[in-house]
């Protein structure tokens, strides 16, 4: 199995803040990999290091088989980045943006124009091709931004929160594009705040916490790791009243039901109980809470 990204012991601090504290990542080629984490966990810093924008204080990273520090140019020939703010030129038209990026990617003038037309079609922007990008809606800018990253299909595509601010329809379109890219051999490395997005898209997920990978695995592995099903109590309108995680054993389920008996809300009319598999949200909260809890006494002692 070849690795598209092989990062070991990445550390980075800004001033006195340690953002990455020994990050390890191994992303198999041709897969979709999602990096999750609370705000400020170091997701963007990780992307910046892997895309050669920022140098790590220590540690090594190979991207598409090349070292991000020693072999920067070769890495740059094989990656694309779609960052958090849409990296498009608002003064130019959609076509001009794509042709410019095509020329910068080594296409001839004619190839660049052909490729621009292809991508405008594929991303449903053909009608707006001749309009200045400054007049585009947020969703259109985001789609153009992604199209710009795909002029030459990269070996590794980095997406920093690609669907933040998109409506549901645009988000699902983007998901299908990302999946088809992975099918064609591109490795996709994305960060996201939406756990549903990671669940639907990613082959593997890493949860970043305190500058390290706290958990890593397939979505199912992560869900299995926090144990058993969740007992839910909802009122007649479907509003969630109570959520009780169980450890998956019969005993655990019984304990949860006992607790429901004591809950006054459970006695009301129309209240329904159900059992569901844990979601990634549960996993995420569990991991970040678990890591936050033991850390706090140490911090207090240190002061």
């Amino acid at each position: 199995m070849t690795l598209a990204i092989d990062a070991r012991g990445l550390r980075k601090h800004f001033g006195r803040t340690e953002v990455l504290a020994g990050l390890d990542l191994a992303v198999p080629a041709g897969t979709v990999f999602a990096l999750l984490g609370p705000n400020g966990a170091g997701k963007t810093t990780t992307i910046n290091i892997l895309t050669t924008l920022v140098r790590a204080d220590s540690g090594t990273a190979l991207v598409a088989g090349h070292d991000v520090v020693a072999d920067t140019e070769e890495v740059k020939r094989r990656i694309s980045l779609t960052g958090q703010s849409a990296a498009v030129d608002g003064v130019l038209t959609g076509t001009e943006n794509l042709v410019m990026m095509g020329r910068l990617s080594g296409l001839s003038r004619r190839e660049a124009r052909v490729r621009a037309a292809e991508l405008l079609d594929r991303f449903d922007l053909a009608d707006a091709a001749g309009r200045r990008v400054g007049t585009y809606s947020g969703g259109m800018r985001r789609r153009l931004d992604l199209a710009l990253s795909l002029i030459v299909a990269p070996a590794v595509l980095f997406l920093d929160e690609p669907t933040t601010g998109l409506d549901t329809r645009s988000r699902q379109e983007l998901w299908s594009v990302i999946r088809s890219l992975a099918g064609a051999g591109t490795t996709v490395f994305l960060t996201t705040q939406y756990l549903e997005e990671a669940d639907r898209l990613a082959d593997r997920i890493a949860v970043l916490d305190g500058g390290r990978v706290a958990e890593e695995g397939t979505p199912d592995e992560l869900k299995a790791r926090i144990g058993g099903d969740v007992v839910e109590l909802r009122d007649a309108d479907g509003v969630l009243l109570l959520e009780l995680p169980t450890d998956g054993s019969v005993h655990g389920l019984r304990a949860a039901l006992d607790e429901l008996d004591r809950a006054p809300a459970a006695a009301a009319d129309g209240v329904a109980v159900s059992i569901r598999r844990p979601s990634l949200d549960d996993v995420f909260l569990d991991i970040t809470a678990r890591n936050a809890a033991p850390a706090s006494p140490e911090l207090l002692e240190a002061k």
Partner: peptide, 30 residues
């Protein structure tokens, strides 16, 4: 669609400069 290469071709010696000059000219004119 042709999405198999996965490596950018190398660009000509002054392609980047001429591309950016074109871009800035378009900015000026607009």
């Amino acid at each position: 669609m042709t999405t198999t290469t996965l490596v950018r071709p190398r660009i000509g010696a002054f392609t980047a400069e001429s591309t950016f000059i074109t871009r800035s000219f378009l900015h000026s004119v607009r």
